[in-house]
Amino acid sequence: MRQRPIWNAYLAGAALGLVLLLTFVLTGHGLGASGAPTAVAAAASDVLAPTATQGNGYLGPMVAEGNNPLNSWIVWEVLGMGIGALLAAWWSGRLRLRVEGAPRFGTGGRLALALFGGIASGFGARVSAGCTSGLGLSGAATLATAGFVFLIGFFGFGLLTGLLTRRMWQ
């Protein structure tokens, strides 16, 4: 299938802003993402090592009193994200299996970098209690100071590591 070009950045941004506004009106909070891998980690941990999980200071409260962390709004939202992104990829002719990443590296190296990046990101999102979606986008949309402090850390340090790793993406 012929690939449809991506949307103009300002139009995509306006559409994203309207989706975010709708989410605030419907739910009282914005969009997020990192809550879903957190719920998956808590649920998996509770199955694999229930005693250790329930005794853990962070995961314990999520599984207390038989609570299922997977039954939460953010997990449904992320499930919806996957469906919406799949539909959009199919509609625009971009749906195919592949491994992307730094062109300097082969498949193994790219997957290793993706794993490392994911670990840093997953850990970081728990430190700040939110990620680029929940704090950077939704927090900033409420004009919360926290959203902009997050964005300063994200772009400030991200630019530093981005420029340092520039050569591996050439």
Partner: peptide
């Protein structure tokens, strides 16, 4: 908030 942002920025750049 800053450290979390920095780690997520690092994760994206890598």
């Amino acid at each position: 908030t800053l450290l979390g942002g920095a780690l997520i920025g690092t994760g994206m750049s890598v």
